[in-house]
C-alpha cells in the first residue's frame, strides 16, 4: 500500500479531513489504478478530478486527435492542443495538476482484440466513450473479466450513469442489444450542452473514488439520470436480469463483439 509523504498529507488534506476517507482512504486512492476509455467530454473531467485526487495510475485510451469542435466541452484540451493526440494532451494536464500520478496512454482504438489486455491491469474502468459498439464492448469485457466500471452517457441536455461491479446489473441487463445503427444520435449528430459533460463526468469521478475508498453506496443496480433543462435528477432501480445476454442464466454473448459503427460515427472518427 502507498504511504503518504508530508507534502501528500498537505495536498490531500481535504480528503484526509473527511472522516470516511482519512489517511487510509487516501492511501487507497493513491494505490488505485483506473482506466479511462475516451479522453473526450466525460474522460476530460474524470481525468482531471482523478488526477487532483491523486489516483496512483491513470490509464487513458483514445485514438483521436483534438479538434476545434471538442473544446466546447472537453475541458482537458486547450486551444493550443488542436491536432495533438488526445491522450498526450490529457497526460500533460494530469501531470501538471499532480506529478505523483503515473499516466499510461493508449493511443489506439479499443476493440475486441485489445480490450481484455488493456483492462487487466486496472482496478476500475470509466466508460467515457460516445458510441454504442464500444459501450457494449466495454460492458461485455468488464463482465467477462469481472472488472467494475462506470457507465456514462450524455445527450443534448441529459445525462445518465450507473456503476457495475461483478454481480450487479450490467449495461445489457438494462439495454439488451445496441440500437439499430443510425437510430441513435451521438454528440456529433445531436449536440450536447458542454457543462453536461462536466456534470456527468464528475459523478463518474466521484463513483470511482467511492469505489477505491469503499465509502458510501455505489450506483449499482440503479440508473441515475438527469435533465439539465429542469435540473431534475432521478434514480431508477434496476436488477441483474436473468435473461441478460451476457450475465444472465443462459448467456448468448460469450465472446467479445465489435458491433458495426454508424457511418456518421466512422466519419467523425476520421477512420
Amino acid at each position: 500500500m502507498f504511504e503518504l509523504s508530508e507534502t501528500d498529507i498537505e495536498r490531500y488534506s481535504r480528503h484526509i479531513l473527511l472522516a470516511d476517507v482519512g489517511v487510509e482512504g487516501q492511501e487507497k486512492i493513491s494505490s488505485g489504478r483506473v482506466l479511462i476509455i475516451g479522453a473526450g467530454g466525460l474522460g476530460a473531467p474524470v481525468s482531471l478530478y482523478l488526477a487532483a485526487a491523486g489516483v496512483g495510475t491513470i490509464g487513458i485510451a483514445d485514438a483521436d486527435t483534438v479538434d476545434l469542435s471538442n473544446l466546447q466541452r472537453q475541458i482537458c484540451h486547450f486551444t493550443k492542443d488542436i491536432g495533438r493526440p488526445k491522450v498526450l494532451s490529457a497526460k500533460e494536464k494530469i501531470e501538471a495538476i499532480n506529478p505523483n500520478v503515473k499516466v499510461v496512454t493508449y493511443q489506439e482504438y479499443i476493440d475486441s482484440k485489445n480490450i481484455l489486455d488493456i483492462i487487466r491491469d486496472y482496478d476500475f474502468i470509466v466508460d467515457g466513450t460516445d458510441n454504442f459498439p464500444i459501450k457494449f464492448l466495454i460492458n461485455d469485457a468488464c463482465v467477462m473479466a469481472e472488472k467494475p466500471f462506470s457507465h456514462g452517457g450524455i445527450l443534448r441536455f441529459e445525462g445518465q450513469t450507473f456503476t457495475h461491479v461483478p454481480g450487479s446489473a450490467c449495461y445489457r441487463c438494462l439495454f439488451g442489444f445496441p440500437p439499430p445503427p443510425n437510430a441513435v444520435p451521438t454528440c456529433s449528430q445531436a449536440g450536447v450542452l458542454g457543462a453536461i459533460a462536466g456534470m456527468l463526468g464528475t459523478i463518474q469521478a466521484a463513483e470511482t473514488l467511492k469505489f477505491l475508498t469503499g465509502v458510501g453506496e455505489l450506483l449499482t443496480n440503479k440508473l441515475l439520470r438527469f435533465d439539465a433543462k429542469t435540473m431534475r435528477f432521478d434514480t431508477i432501480k434496476t436488477k441483474k436480469s436473468k435473461q441478460c445476454p451476457v450475465c444472465g442464466e443462459h448467456p448468448t454473448v460469450t465472446t467479445l463483439i465489435d458491433y458495426e459503427q454508424t457511418v456518421c460515427d466512422l466519419a467523425s472518427h476520421k477512420k
Binding site: 479522453a39 473526450g40 459501450k135 452517457g153 445527450l155 444520435p185 454528440c187 450536447v192 467523425s268 472518427h269
Partner: peptide, 12 residues
C-alpha cells in the same frame, strides 16, 4: 414502467 434512452456522449 420506465422508458430508458440510449445515450452516447463522451469522447469524440
Amino acid at each position: 414502467i420506465d422508458f430508458l434512452y440510449f445515450m452516447g456522449g463522451g469522447s469524440n
